[in-house]
């Protein structure tokens, strides 16, 4: 498979990049590692006239500790670099696990955290070659008002597939978005929206320049279901962060990945834990609630009921791990 032609823009500075973005409107695409974007271009899902490469921009490579103890990670940092970063390993082991679980070593050597956070949504019908797609009617992502995943819907149900996204939400992180108009800071939780076609609040002309992770408050865990280890996208992922004791939690944030067009915050399941702490019963109940809160998404590999079962098992195991972390100290 070959790439379609485009004009390549390699800015010397972020400002120059933002200038190019402003100039070319919707004709330009942003590339970081390219490990997702280039495949979509080969599939002719994206066909930008201009390609803005952020690779090597020094502004995006920094990892720095802020005064309040937060960690600011430049969007251009490669996933391998972050997975090996001593500070991340020590302070945010669950984030390290999420980053480490992305694709293969090869992919992490190329992919960046910015690209991972912005990763396009995916689905069986659309992430295929153009000739493959020609055998069917189009969909929201191509040229028609329908979704093959959920036939009765009025929006695109392609799945958010980022592994870092759910974890960053659980850790209450924010992203820094820059445009020629200046910078804004958006909590990751508000960065995503429940529409496969338009899954983030990024505006044209905006670049994600960094992610800010606040100082760790309690314990966190990341778990991922994938048929093959060290390569596959998640069939479902789960990120959780809690503070307080197992008996009485002070905060809870539970997030599922790869189940909806956005990372899904599990409010109901979270409430169960807030009320009852982390016990065998509450973990069971929370896993059950997580299962019930999922949309009915057809998944070619598994009958619909099975994916929900998997999710329940995943949530249960991960929450048990989270509880035992406190016991182990």
């Amino acid at each position: 498979m070959q790439l379609p032609p485009f004009e390549y823009i390699r800015p010397e500075s972020l400002a120059e990049g933002l200038q190019a973005l402003a100039e070319h409107g919707d004709k330009i695409a942003i590339m970081s590692g390219g490990s997702d974007l280039l495949i979509n271009m080969k599939f002719r899902l994206d066909g930008p006239e201009y390609l803005l490469s952020l690779n090597g921009l020094p502004e995006l490579q920094l990892i720095e500790e802020l005064d309040d103890g937060s960690l600011r990670i430049g969007a251009g940092c490669k996933l391998t670099e972050l997975a090996n970063n001593a500070l991340i390993k020590e302070r945010y082991p669950a984030l390290q696990a999420a980053i480490f679980s992305v694709g293969s070593r090869h992919v992490r050597n190329m992919g960046t955290i910015g690209g991972n956070i912005c990763l396009d949504t995916r689905c069986w019908y659309t992430n295929q070659s153009e000739t493959w797609r020609d055998t069917r009617d189009g969909c929201f992502k191509t040229d028609s008002e329908q979704c093959h995943v959920i036939k009765t819907t009025t929006k695109c149900h392609a799945l958010s597939s980022t592994d870092s996204g759910p974890m960053l939400i659980a850790l209450d992180a924010s992203v820094v978005l820059a445009s020629q108009a200046g910078e804004r800071v958006v909590p990751v939780r508000e960065f995503y929206q429940d529409d496969g076609l338009d899954h983030t609040v990024l505006e044209p002309g905006e670049v994600l320049v960094a992610v800010i992770v606040p100082p760790p408050r309690g314990r966190a865990v990341f778990a991922k279901l994938a048929q093959r280890e060290g390569l596959d996208f998640a069939a479902g992922s789960f990120a959780a962060a809690v503070s307080g004791s197992n008996e009485k939690l002070d905060s809870v944030c539970l997030v599922m990945g790869s189940v909806a067009p956005e990372p899904r915050v599990m409010e109901q399941a979270g409430k169960i834990l807030m009320d009852a702490g982390l016990t065998d019963e509450s973990i069971d109940a929370a896993a059950g609630a997580a299962r019930l809160s999922l949309d009915e998404v057809t998944n070619l590999f598994t009958p619909p009921g099975y994916k929900k079962r998997l999710i329940r098992a995943l949530v249960k195991d991960a929450l048990t791990e989270l509880r035992d972390q406190a016991v182990r100290g």
């Binding site: 069986w124 493959w132 093959r228 280890e229 060290g230 390569l231 596959d232 070619l300």
Partner: peptide, 17 residues
């Protein structure tokens, strides 16, 4: 139609398995 026509979606195991 083949729904999983790729090295990613046609699941042949790798080193870990």
């Amino acid at each position: 139609q083949v729904m999983n026509p790729s090295r990613l979606d046609y699941k042949m195991p790798r080193a870990f398995e």
